[in-house]
């Protein structure tokens, strides 16, 4: 009950923030909420299973593009529903063809997926519809987008928390530790992985769809920017992909840092990103939260040794 109370108060506090901050601050909040949701959704699947997905932007971009195509045809809630449906279908197809095999096939498939979807959409737009580039005319300001993302983010963290306590979460942790053991204890490997992958990809698609009105003008090279995949992975890893609050702890400082870096060093941004990414992989293999715990533990062990001696 206490936790629910804290959660309600903090969500309430977060939702009035746009009134206190100016336009620039609200813009930052949109990005923050977006990346926290992306990183949490990514870690929901890739954390416990250790199947590194490099295809975040493939789903994100599909969400954004669906809104760009349908925004004048259907009412907004239906557009979001369509985006989620398309994202889920795509994840189902990708998952069915790769998740039954060893993890490396999934990684490779996801590595080129964004480029494939981008080229396919470009080809379709140029050859069939004849228009490359679309406009989004939706009456949604930064504030409304932020509230939607906040709601989605809260749902995502709630879902992640629920999955961790459920049998499915336990099954995934066993799969991540040892697939053979998991299979022998009667876990349906492919189905467990597939369910989580589809859930995670659907959320990622929705983030893209909700953020789409921020662009106004959309074309494949804008919405399929590989940096999104990259940032999502590094944020989740920095915080710790196996922890519930890890992605959030990684996303907040990194997003602000990237915002500053991309303004200060626009030309060298991707070099700095890559170096930072490697630093995280080498220095904090299990994330900041685990490193902090690791710093505390040795002391405790030392104390207990003294006690026994």
């Amino acid at each position: 009950m206490l936790y629910l109370g804290i959660a309600a108060v903090s969500v309430g506090g977060l939702s009035v923030l746009p009134f206190l901050l100016g336009d620039y601050g609200t813009g930052l909040l949109v990005g923050l909420a977006g990346y926290v949701t992306l990183a949490t959704a990514w870690a929901m699947f890739s954390g416990p299973t250790r199947y590194i997905s490099l295809a975040t932007v493939a789903f994100f971009g599909v969400g954004a593009y669906t809104v760009a195509v349908l925004n004048e045809v259907l009412p907004y809630p239906l557009v979001l529903l369509c985006a989620a449906g398309i994202g889920a279908t795509m994840a189902l197809l990708v998952g069915l063809s790769t998740l039954r095999l060893a993890g490396i096939y999934f990684v490779i498939f996801s590595f080129g997926l964004a480029e494939l979807v981008r080229q396919l959409i470009t080809w379709f737009e140029v050859n069939v519809t004849g228009t490359l580039g679309r406009y989004i005319f939706l009456d949604l300001g930064a504030r409304e987008i932020y509230w939607q993302l906040l709601a989605l983010g809260v749902c995502t963290i709630g879902l992640a928390a629920w999955i961790r306590r459920s049998r499915l979460g336990l099954a995934l942790r066993v799969i991540g530790d040892d697939e053979t053991v998991a299979a022998h204890s009667g876990i349906n490997l492919a189905r467990s992985k597939l369910v989580l992958f589809v859930a995670s990809a659907t959320i990622i698609t929705l983030v893209g769809a909700i953020q789409a009105p921020r662009w106004v003008y959309v074309e494949p090279s804008i919405v399929f920017n590989p940096t999104v995949s990259f940032l999502t992975v590094i944020m989740a890893l920095l915080g710790g992909a196996t922890r519930l609050w890890g992605p959030l702890c990684g996303a907040v400082p990194l997003f602000l840092l990237f915002e500053w870096l991309s303004a200060r060093f626009p030309d060298h941004f991707s070099i700095l990103l890559g170096l930072l990414f490697m630093a995280v992989v080498y220095a904090l293999p299990n994330g900041v939260l685990a490193a902090i715990e690791g710093l505390r533990k040795p002391k405790r062990n030392g104390a207990s040794k003294e006690a026994t001696a």
């Binding site: 590194i52 992975v233 991707s270 990103l273 890559g274 990414f277 992989v281």
Partner: peptide, 12 residues
Amino acid sequence: LATFGLLFVVQG
């Protein structure tokens, strides 16, 4: 993960 980071460095 390490070579994914390297990719962005070399590309940059």
